[in-house]
């Protein structure tokens, strides 16, 4: 009994950690590909948190609505990611760079 409650909590906390890690990555990295990856890490964290919050308790299973919403959310995140990557490729072709702020270009290439 105790163990199952803990595992739902564990999933929720893992989700929160992923959100935090992703947020850190989104802020500190200038390279656009890294930012898109960070966006996906945050998204996964939110979906994990959402799924864990849908747990109704031992013997009651889970609420199906969050699962349906998570699937929709994944589809949205996937299309946004594909679109973002297409834009970054276009920027790289046009300007030979994958960062927006020109001052950060040099340090970013060394990463």
């Amino acid at each position: 009994m105790m163990a199952t409650i803990d595992s739902a909590l564990l999933f929720a906390l893992t989700g929160c950690v992923l959100i935090g890690l992703g947020l850190y990555g989104f802020i500190v990295h200038a390279h656009l590909l890294r930012r898109i990856l960070a966006f996906n890490v945050i998204g996964s964290g939110i979906f994990l948190l959402f799924g864990a919050l849908g747990y109704l308790g031992a013997g009651q299973g889970t609420d199906p609505v969050p699962q349906a919403l998570i699937i929709t959310g994944i589809v949205v995140a996937l299309s946004l990611t594909a679109f973002a990557i297409a834009l970054v490729i276009k920027l790289a072709e046009e300007e030979k760079t994958a960062v927006l702020d020109a001052a950060k270009t040099a340090e970013d290439l060394h990463e």
């Binding site: 656009l32 939110i46 959402f50 946004l80 834009l87 970054v88 920027l91 300007e95 927006l100």
Partner: peptide, 28 residues
């Protein structure tokens, strides 16, 4: 222009995530 589009997209992506997190909490 690609540059302006990517800047817009980054703001919009961050906005989407904040909105989605709020939705999750609201549902919970």
């Amino acid at each position: 222009g690609t540059r302006a589009a990517i800047r817009y997209l980054l703001f919009a992506l961050a906005g989407s995530l904040a909105y989605l997190t709020g939705v999750v909490l609201l549902y919970a």
